[in-house]
């Protein structure tokens, strides 16, 4: 068997693949956080809970409504995103004018409510969601075995990330959005409905989290606590990348996943903490973050 640095090549590639998959989720989630932060200037602490709601909606939809995976992939982000818009209209709008830390605290409270409710209804142990038939099996690539579903997750996540980048950076709607980020009053003065845009933006960010949740459902045990620990890692990713750039958030997410995967191969004890260590180094060397504008 081919070895590299005393590690079998298959193991190395396997972990790299797992790392890339994790990285795809980091990218999707930090992208959603960045989109929301851009216009609302709040950190959506409920993001992890909304990701979890996405996975649960897919699971429950399959159990009670016979919703298949592909329908869930479209419908669940819409439903959870709509829930996000309701949250924005009813709650976040009321504290818009306040210090943005209150947004963090409010969404933290929401995260506790979502998570606690589902823990009571379904317990903490995870359930599994079957991999859709069309995506089961895998490819033998010679140097490794690539399960089809993992390849699909990577492709789907990258396509969605690119689509969001395109929407924000290359379309008229995205131009309004970016202008709103710079100066909401002026944009409003030009006759653009900024409050509606804020609602839709929050909905989009939440929908991205729910989409990631549906993608994750067949890979990880679906449990009420699946989002919260992931979210803290995503926060570290966001600190590393800075939230100034969409592409930066995507790249940082993928890169951190790969670094985590490599750490699992070479020094497994540190696999949980390596992203935090990278964050510490970035804070020391480049406090504004790799792609950050904020001083």
């Amino acid at each position: 068997m081919t070895m590299i640095f005393g590690i079998p090549l298959m193991v190395l590639f396997g972990q790299l693949m797992l790392g890339l998959i994790n990285g795809a989720f980091y990218a999707l989630l930090s992208l959603g956080l960045a989109v929301i932060f851009g216009l609302l200037r709040i950190i959506n602490f409920a993001h992890g809970a909304q990701y979890m709601l996405g996975a649960f909606a897919a699971l429950l939809g399959a159990q009670y409504l016979g919703l298949n995976y592909w329908a869930a992939l479209i419908l669940v982000p819409l439903v959870v995103g709509a829930l996000g818009i309701v949250v924005e209209r009813l709650l976040l709008r009321r504290i818009q004018h306040l210090d943005h830390l209150y947004g963090l605290l409010l969404t933290f409270g929401l995260a506790l409510i979502f998570e606690g409710t589902l823990v009571n209804l379904f317990g903490v142990s995870g359930s599994s969601y079957p991999i859709p038939e069309a995506l089961s099996g895998g490819f033998k690539l010679g140097f490794m075995f690539l399960p089809t579903y993992r390849a699909w997750v990577l492709v789907a996540a990258l396509v969605v990330c690119f689509a969001v980048w395109f929407l924000i950076e290359r379309t008229r709607l995205g131009a309004y959005l970016r202008a709103g980020t710079e100066n909401p009053e002026l944009v409003q003065a030009f006759g653009i409905n900024v409050p509606l845009m804020v609602s839709l933006t929050y909905g989009l960010g939440v929908a991205l989290a729910a989409f990631a949740g549906v993608l994750a459902a067949p890979l990880y045990p679906v449990s009420p606590t699946m989002g919260s620990n992931l979210l803290i890692v995503v926060f570290a990713v966001v600190v590393i990348g800075g939230m100034g750039s969409i592409l930066g958030a995507i790249l940082t997410g993928l890169a951190m996943g790969v670094i985590e995967g490599l750490t699992k191969v070479f020094y497994p004890e540190a696999a949980n903490t390596v992203i935090f260590v990278v964050m510490v180094m970035v804070l020391m060397l480049r406090p504004a973050g790799l792609f950050g504008k904020e001083a």
């Binding site: 950190i43 943005h100 890692v233 600190v239 964050m279 020391m284 904020e294």
Partner: peptide, 21 residues
């Protein structure tokens, strides 16, 4: 020393991540 290098919302996220570490 690490956390005060960032402000506001980032400060909260940095301290959360360090504590998770």
């Amino acid at each position: 020393a690490l956390a005060i290098r960032r402000q506001g919302i980032y400060f909260a996220m940095v301290t959360l991540a360090l504590a998770q570490m």
